[in-house]
Amino acid sequence: MAPVAPRSGDVIFASVERVNAELFTLTYGAIVRQLITDLEEVEEVNKQLDQMGYNIGIRLIDEFLAKSNVSRCVDFKETAEVIAKVGFKMFLGVTASVTNWDAEGTCCSLILEDNPLVDFVELPDTCQGLYYCNILSGVVRGALEMVSMKTEVTWLRDMLRGDDAFELQVKLLKQVPEEYPYKDDE
């Protein structure tokens, strides 16, 4: 059987069921607001958002692989491109661009110009330390961990903090070798 060709982010996004982005945006806003009320410290909120994102990421990767037909990426560069062009597109309907590679090719930036999470959002003075979109970094980290890549994902630029774009730095810490053969009875 010939290998199935990988599908582009646009094609997948057009074929999946979609919901109104405002429902998504406002629901996310409601979550962040709940966290701020419950946890009080913005640092704790950042942590919780990252954790929620991680939980999503480790489940979302399955759907991503099933729908995208993406085969194994040869290097981290390809991985980053796939996240930016296919991953973001198929779930959020927006694409990111990949830049700022370091010399080793293990660290890069994903730049989001359009971000459905932040419509209608303005950070009040009391929440200046908040990484409002921290859930996204968690998602990327969780999803990559499921394909054997330990990463560190941090926000470098955030439009809600007055920057001109959203910049998410993804740094490959190590590639965990897969163990063969898998033991079924563990």
Partner: peptide, 10 residues
């Protein structure tokens, strides 16, 4: 729009 799964996960 965003994908239904994105909303469902959230």
């Amino acid at each position: 729009e965003v994908s239904l799964s994105a909303f469902a996960f959230l």
